[in-house]
Measured scan of single mutants.
Amino acid sequence: DHIPWITAVLPTVIICVMVFCLILWKW
C-alpha cells in the first residue's frame, strides 16, 4: 500500500508558507 506522503508533507509546506508570508509582511 502507498504511503500518502502528501499528508505528511502538506503541514510542513503550510507552516513554511505561513512563516514566509509573515516575514515578508513584517518587512
Rank of each mutant, 00 (worst) to 15 (best):
D1G: 02
D1F: 02
D1Y: 01
D1R: 00
D1I: 00
D1S: 02
D1V: 00
D1H: 02
D1N: 01
H2W: 15
H2T: 10
H2C: 13
H2Q: 04
H2N: 03
I3L: 03
I3V: 08
I3S: 06
I3Q: 07
I3A: 14
I3M: 11
I3C: 12
P4S: 06
P4G: 04
P4Q: 03
P4H: 05
P4T: 03
P4K: 01
W5H: 04
W5C: 11
W5R: 05
W5D: 15
W5Y: 15
I6S: 07
I6E: 02
I6N: 00
I6C: 01
I6M: 01
I6K: 03
I6A: 02
I6G: 05
T7R: 00
T7H: 06
T7Y: 09
T7P: 01
T7D: 04
T7N: 03
A8T: 00
A8S: 01
A8F: 14
A8Y: 04
V9R: 01
V9C: 10
V9T: 13
V9N: 02
V9I: 03
V9L: 08
V9A: 09
V9Q: 02
L10C: 15
L10Q: 15
L10E: 13
L10G: 04
P11E: 06
P11L: 01
P11T: 08
P11F: 07
P11I: 07
T12Q: 00
T12A: 07
T12G: 05
V13R: 06
V13F: 04
V13K: 02
V13M: 05
I14N: 03
I14G: 09
I14T: 12
I14M: 08
I14Q: 13
I14S: 10
I15F: 14
I15Y: 00
I15T: 12
I15R: 04
I15N: 10
I15H: 08
C16S: 04
C16V: 15
C16I: 13
C16G: 07
C16P: 11
V17Q: 07
V17C: 14
V17R: 08
V17N: 13
M18A: 10
M18S: 02
M18K: 02
M18D: 02
M18C: 11
M18F: 04
V19R: 03
V19P: 08
V19A: 13
V19N: 01
V19S: 05
V19W: 05
V19E: 04
F20P: 11
F20I: 06
F20T: 04
F20R: 09
C21M: 09
C21I: 13
C21T: 11
C21E: 11
C21S: 06
C21W: 02
C21R: 12
L22P: 09
L22E: 01
L22A: 00
L22Y: 06
L22R: 02
L22H: 08
L22G: 06
I23L: 08
I23Q: 15
I23E: 06
I23C: 15
I23M: 05
I23A: 06
L24Q: 07
L24M: 14
L24S: 12
L24A: 13
W25E: 08
W25V: 15
W25S: 07
W25R: 09
W25I: 08
W25D: 13
W25Q: 12
W25P: 09
K26G: 04
K26S: 11
K26H: 15
K26T: 13
K26I: 08
W27N: 09
W27L: 07
W27V: 13
W27T: 14
W27G: 12
W27E: 14
W27M: 03
